[in-house]
Structure formats: structure tokens, C-alpha cells
Design a protein around this nucleic acid. Structure first.
Lengths: 236, 236
DNA sequence: CGCCTACTTGAAAGCGTTCAACAGTAGTGG
DNA sequence: CCACTACTGTTGAACGCTTTCAAGTAGGCG
């Protein structure tokens, strides 16, 4: 029996303006469409790929969310990103044989898989595709530098406030509720990402809640006073 | 009077195996050669570009060294990289109108400038050039993640030991002395890069020296026991 | 309904920062 | 050429933010 086709073509996809097609003509989107693989959704905790796997694809979130993390020689794990619908990831292993990163679904998540060999071939005939991938990579570098500043120079409360506003802004871009939302990652994940102990993250959530800046219950968060949050980002 | 031509063609350049030409045919190198600008060297402290300048080029160090740093809304400076001969930088602003980074020479430094408009055009006809730039960008992302782990998860002594071994390895790749060398950046720069106060960097240098792991006098450093340094990286 | 995991809260300890003073070196100008 | 100056780097002591350790609480999922 044929499996029901849950695929949504790029041309039909609500995310196309946040995704690679944003820079492509409709003919080029069709060519891209041809190489994309859309597997059945992963459930929470499922691995997209693990460090050491053969590197062979880039990924885009279609729905749900993903975390990526590295594990260094001493076993230290570092979460390197959380990815929302329309975001391209897996870019750190392009120059390697094997993945240097592990990617895991934070909730039920569906994906587009872009086989790198095909994508690379397509870049030869579609320069605007190569250009767009470079743009995404450049943004990733810029954002990584901002994260480094955050972790290297800012206090715990600034780190968490910045994190919350960043998530909010990314949700807004997707026309999702951006003042009240469900975090898909744990306190421990947030702490790992921001270079804080999970207890510190928990304490900061509590403090923001007590100060009336946010309302928080477990993973459910409401940003009550964005201006105050922005103040906290800039303090210190 | 014609200015003496201090340029070294890519084909003559000792760095070509560390630089973009590594992936190009000789015909393609010639095409790249055509768009490269090689200005007169900058002296120590000179700015290559500053945040807010129009973004229009990528850069490669030919000799000397460069630091790049961002300045956020609150005026916090974060050094995002030190660049040695053959290294390509300026990649974080590709998707922007203006530079989001400032680049400054750490010593007398000569450069190759790659006008981005021309480079982008050349990528259309030379896919391996686009591919190579993506590889460099991917490496930058990978290295940024490693730096994030270092700053986010490791103790001060691990951060400095890792920094020293990283510089050493990059010097070795350039066939430069890698066990005894001159650092071109200040303690304050190292501290800023690694998320430490300059006093802490100074104390760690002193400790390593007292422990016989390195010999240090101001900017002159000798790595006496690389194995011990590696141990320090992995501790904690 | 009960277990397990995620989260919260408290108290003590530690690492790195901050503040302060000093030393040494390189660069400047007389 | 030397003296002065400014900057970079070093060292000490106290403070403080975050971590660690420990215990307890609350949801979620079987």
C-alpha cells in the first residue's frame, strides 16, 4: 500500500519566503524541489544525524524544532543552535567527511532533506542558489559571533532575556504568537546553550516572573514587558 | 612615477595551498588574480574596515596578522577572530549592506582584497570557487562552535592552553616556527577573545611559566611541553 | 495511581573579576 | 642619546556571580 504523501511542495509551502526559495525563480524552485527528500516526521528525542555519521545532507525544519550540539574530545556537550521552521542547518560539516554535530528533534518534527551532492551540483547551474546558501552561512557566522558575545561578556540575566527575545522575534517572523509561546527545549538545554547551569536558568526564570517581566509555568512563557526584557539585555 | 609593484601573483604565492587557489585550476586562478586588489601594507593598529562601513570585499592576510571584533548595542566589544597569512575573513557581513565587524592590523600587515561583487560574479562561471568559499565558511562555523564550547564550558587555564596550541598548529601549517613564536596580540585581546579578564590571562601565563610548561616573556612564547598543554586543555 | 524526569529552591563554595598599585618596556621628543 | 611618558603587563587582595551539592516539588506518561 502506498504511503499517503504528506509532502508539501516548496511552491505551496508557507515557509518559502523564509527558506531557500526566497531567492529563486519558479523554474529554479522546481529544480530544487526535485532533489528534496521529505521523510516521515521524527518524534521528540529522535536523531536526525549524529556526530561521526557520514556527512551527506543539509536540513531544513518544516515543523517542530531541532537542537544541534557538538561533543568534544573530553565529552563536553555544547548546544550550537535551536532551529525553527524554515531554518537551514547542518552547515558546519560541509568541508568534512563526517558530521561534527548531532541533531535531535525537540518535539515531533518534520524536515526537508537536501542531499549535499545534488545541491552542490544544482549550485553550478543555479548561481542564485549558491549565493543564497552563502547568505545563510554568513548569517550563521554573524549569529554565532553574537552568541559568543552573549556567553563571553554578559551576565546570566542578560543571557536569558536575550534568548527569550530572540525566540520571540523568530516566532514573529513566522507569524506565530510571539508574546506567549511554548519553549520546546528544557532548562538544561537552555543552560547548556547559554553557558549557564540549569539551576541558574531556573532562578532567572523565577526572578523575571517575580519581577512581572514574564509569566512562566514550566515550558509555557508569556513575555509581559518586552521593553523591560530589552533593558535587562542591555544592562551590565 | 609608477609605484613599485609589490604584488605577488597567486601562482607565485607561498600561501596558495592554504588559500582559495587550493581548489582552482590554473586558468581559474588567473581569473581570480584579475579581481584581486593588493593595497600597500597597513601598519600596526590600522583599520582594514570598520563596523558600519559599506560591505564590499572579503580579505585574505598575506603577511602579518589581523583581529576582527564586533561592537554590540551596549558598546561591548568581542574579538571574533585572529587571522594569519592565507586566512580568509570578512565572511559575516555577506548578507548585509554594511560591515558588522571591525578589522584591525595587529602588526605591519599586507592583504589581498577580493571585491565581493566581482567574486560573486566569478562564482557563477567558476563553481569550484563558490564551493571553496563555502568550505571556508563551513570551517569558520565549525571553529566558532569550538570557541563557544571553550568559552562556555572550560576553565581559564584550558582556554589559554587551547588558544596557544591552536596558534601553534596554525603556524606549523604555514611552516613557521610553532614551538617558539611571538604573539602579535595583547593580553587584553587574548582575554577579550577567550572571555577572560586580561589579569586572568596574565596569571595563567605566569602559572604555565612557573610550571615549566611554557617559557614566556611578554609577547615571546615558547611551548616547552605540548603534551602537558594538551592535558590542560582536556582537564575539567 | 505511581514512577520518573524536569524543574525549583536553598546554602555553601569556588573561580574569575574587580580594584588597586606597581613594574617594565617601547616609543617620543627634547 | 637620554629622559620622560604612556602603555602593556604583572601581582595582590577582596568581592561577587555563578556553580555545585543537596533536597524537595510537580507534571507527564505509562
Amino acid at each position: 500500500m502506498l504511503k499517503a504523501k504528506i509532502e508539501t511542495a516548496c511552491t505551496e509551502c508557507a515557509l518559502s519566503q523564509l527558506c531557500l526559495p526566497v531567492a529563486l525563480s519558479s523554474a529554479d524552485v522546481a529544480a530544487l524541489e526535485n532533489i528534496i527528500d521529505r521523510p516521515t516526521p521524527l518524534s521528540r528525542g529522535g536523531y536526525l544525524f549524529q556526530a561521526g555519521d557520514q556527512f551527506d545532507s543539509l536540513y531544513v525544519v518544516r515543523s517542530g524544532s531541532v537542537k544541534t550540539y557538538t561533543v568534544d574530545a573530553t565529552g563536553t556537550e555544547q548546544i550550537t543552535g535551536f532551529y525553527l521552521p524554515g531554518e537551514l542547518f547542518g552547515l558546519s560539516s560541509i568541508n568534512e567527511q563526517t558530521q561534527n554535530t548531532t541533531a535531535q528533534a525537540l518535539e515531533r518534527t518534520s524536515l526537508c532533506i537536501l542531499p549535499y551532492h545534488d545541491l552542490d551540483g544544482l549550485c553550478e547551474t543555479v548561481p542564485s542558489l549558491a549565493r543564497q546558501i552563502m547568505r545563510v552561512m554568513s548569517n550563521e557566522i554573524r549569529d554565532d559571533h553574537a552568541l559568543l558575545t552573549l556567553v563571553s561578556k554578559k551576565r546570566a540575566e542578560s543571557r536569558l532575556a536575550t534568548f527569550l527575545l530572540s525566540i520571540s522575534a523568530r516566532l514573529k517572523k513566522r507569524k506565530l504568537p510571539d508574546e506567549e509561546f511554548q519553549l520546546s527545549m528544557s532548562r538544561s538545554d537552555i543552560g547548556n546553550y547559554l553557558g549557564l547551569a540549569e539551576e541558574t536558568v531556573s532562578r532567572m526564570f523565577t526572578r523575571f516572573h517575580e519581577d512581572g517581566v514574564i509569566k512562566v509555568n514550566r515550558k509555557q512563557v508569556a513575555l509581559l514587558d518586552k521593553a523591560a526584557l530589552q533593558e535587562i539585555c542591555d544592562s551590565s
